[in-house]
Amino acid sequence: MKTTWLMLFLFLTTPLLAQEKQQVTAADYANREVSMADSFRAEGKIYVVVAILATVLAGLLVFTLVTDRKVSKLEQEMEHLKKKIIN
């Protein structure tokens, strides 16, 4: 328990400040002098990128889910085997 508290304390003190903060103001959102991907967004093409990334994520998540189910199946088979061998 003592060590757990120690680890927790170490973790909680990580955001200790060594420098001063810079504030982000509303003016930063409106600052048109800084170039951003405005035309890219205006043309609507950003949606294509979002769709591509969402597809990639969906694919990876489905793959992980299928792997999860395979492990679950093996676990069930293992339970059967255990019962069989012990009896």
Binding site: V24, A30, R32, V34, M36, I46, V49, V50, L53
Partner: peptide
Amino acid sequence: LMMEVPRLP
């Protein structure tokens, strides 16, 4: 990707 972010140099 879609939401607004501050414009910082």
